[in-house]
Design a binder for these strands. Structure first.
Lengths: 229, 229
DNA sequence: AGATTGAATTGATAAAAGTCAACCATTGAA
DNA sequence: TTCAATGGTTGACTTTTATCAATTCAATCT
C-alpha cells in the first residue's frame, strides 16, 4: 500500500503535512483505477471520501429534471469535492471519469480529524478550498458576462498561452466536452469556430492554429479576473 | 471601540474563537457605517480586509467590457470576500451596499495570522468558506439548469417557505435586484410573474400571494441540491 | 393637488442560443 | 473492404432571452 500512497506525498496539499498526519490520512485511504466513463460519485450522496486525482481526467457535472450541465474538468493533483467533505454534507455534483483515471480516496472523517490536529494541513485545505471557490467564481463570470463565441475565443487563447504560444496545438478535450465546459451545444461550438476564422484562428479536426494572436486577443479581451489560472 | 466590536463577538464565525485570538482579530479592525450605494470594494484590488456585515445588505457584482452581472446579495452576519483574504489575492468581485449598512473590516493579515495560531478559528473559517463555495455552486446550477421562469418560481417558493408559508408576503428586494440576482432583465422578470399567475402566484406590487403552493411546487420542482439554504 | 422621479410593465422587435435533421469524416470491427 | 458507430458539421427552424421604446404606476416633494 505504501508505495502507492507515496504517489501523493508530494502533492501541494500535503507539502507541509507532518508524517504522522499523513499516516493518519492515508491509513484508511485507497487508490483505485477507474475505466473511462466510470461514475465516481453521484450528487446527493453523503460525502464519505475526499477524492484526489493522480492521473486521468474527471468531469464534475450536475443534473436536474433530465437536464445536465458540466461544471468543470479536472486533471492530476486536483481534489474533489472538498467542500462537501469539510461540511459533512451531500455532494452537490456528480463526478465521472472521461478517461482511464487513477484516484485516491481518503475517508472524509480522517480529513476532518487531521484538519483539527494539524495546523499546516488545515492551512493547505483552506488554500485549496479558496482556490476552488475562486475557480467557480471565475467560471460563473465567464458564463454570465460573455457570449458563447467570446468564451470559445478565450478558451483557445488560454490553451495557446499555457502551451507557450506554439505554432499549432491539439485540443486536449473532445469538442463536445469543450462545448459542455463552455456551456453551449456542440453545434454552437462549431459555429463559433467558424466565426473565429475571421479573428485569426483555424481549427482543423483536433488541431488549432492561432494565425493572428493579437487579433484574437483583441476580440477575446482576456481578463485576469476571469481567465487567470 | 470595544462595545462596537462586541457586536460581532457572537457571530458563528467567532463562536469558538479564544478571547485572545478575538482580541488580535479586532485590534486592527474597524466598524463603519455606509450609506446606500457605497462601493465597498472594487474587483482587482488587493484584499486588504475581510468584511463582515453587521446590518444592511450588500451586493457582490462583477463587470467585464461594460457589462455587469450580479453574483449575490448578502445580509447580516455574512462575510465577504473570504477567499481573496485567505489567498492574499485580488478580489474577483466588487461589492456595494444597496441599503444603509454597518460593516466590520478586519485586516487580512490578522485573519491569516490568527488562522495559523487558533485551530478553532481555522475551523470556523473553513466551514464558512466551504459554505460560500457550496453557495456559488448552487447558484451556478440554478442558472445553468433552469429557465428564467423556473428560477423565479423557485425564488418565490423559497421565500414563501423561509417565511413559514404566510398568506402573503413582501418581496425583500426590489424587483430589478431580484432580476439581477436571477440573471435576467427586469422586463423578463415581469413577464415571468405573468406566466406564473397560471401556476398559482399573484404578484401585486411588492406583495406576493401563493394561491396554489402545490401547483407552484409542481412547476418549480425545488431541489435541495440547488435550493437548500 | 400637481410635478417629478424612478421603477415596473407592456408590446414590438432583434439577437443569441438551442433543437432537429441530414450529412460528412474517421475509426474500428466484422 | 464494407459497414456500423461515433463525433463533428451544416442548414433550417424554434425557443428563449435581450433590447428598445412607450406607457403606466407609485412614492415623494413642493
Amino acid at each position: 500500500m505504501h508505495s502507492r500512497i507515496q504517489e501523493i506525498r508530494d502533492l501541494p496539499l500535503f507539502a507541509t503535512t507532518s508524517d504522522e498526519a499523513f499516516q493518519t490520512l492515508t491509513r484508511g485511504a485507497y487508490v483505485q483505477n477507474f475505466p473511462t466513463h466510470a461514475e465516481l460519485i453521484t450528487e446527493g450522496e453523503s460525502a464519505d471520501f475526499l477524492h484526489i486525482i493522480i492521473s486521468g481526467c474527471v468531469e464534475l457535472f450536475s443534473a436536474w429534471q433530465g437536464r445536465e450541465t458540466t461544471m468543470s474538468f479536472h486533471g492530476p493533483d486536483a481534489t474533489f469535492i472538498l467542500a462537501a467533505t469539510i461540511k459533512d454534507r451531500p455532494y452537490l455534483m456528480s463526478a465521472r471519469t472521461i478517461e482511464k483515471s487513477r484516484i485516491i480516496m481518503i475517508p472524509s472523517e480522517d480529513v476532518r480529524a487531521v484538519f483539527e490536529t494539524d495546523p499546516d494541513f488545515a492551512k493547505s485545505i483552506v488554500t485549496e478550498l479558496a482556490g476552488c471557490y475562486r475557480g467557480v467564481i471565475k467560471a460563473s463570470k465567464n458564463i454570465k458576462l460573455r457570449s458563447s463565441t467570446e468564451r470559445i475565443a478565450n478558451y483557445l487563447l488560454k490553451s495557446y498561452n499555457a502551451l507557450g504560444k506554439p505554432k499549432d496545438f491539439t485540443l486536449e478535450l473532445e469538442k463536445r466536452r469543450i462545448a459542455a465546459l463552455l456551456g453551449m451545444t456542440p453545434e454552437n461550438l462549431s459555429r463559433g469556430f467558424a466565426v473565429l476564422k475571421e479573428k485569426g484562428v483555424s481549427v482543423r479536426g483536433q488541431t488549432v492554429r492561432i494565425t493572428d494572436p493579437e487579433g484574437l486577443a483583441k476580440f477575446a479581451k482576456p481578463n485576469r479576473l476571469i481567465d487567470s489560472w
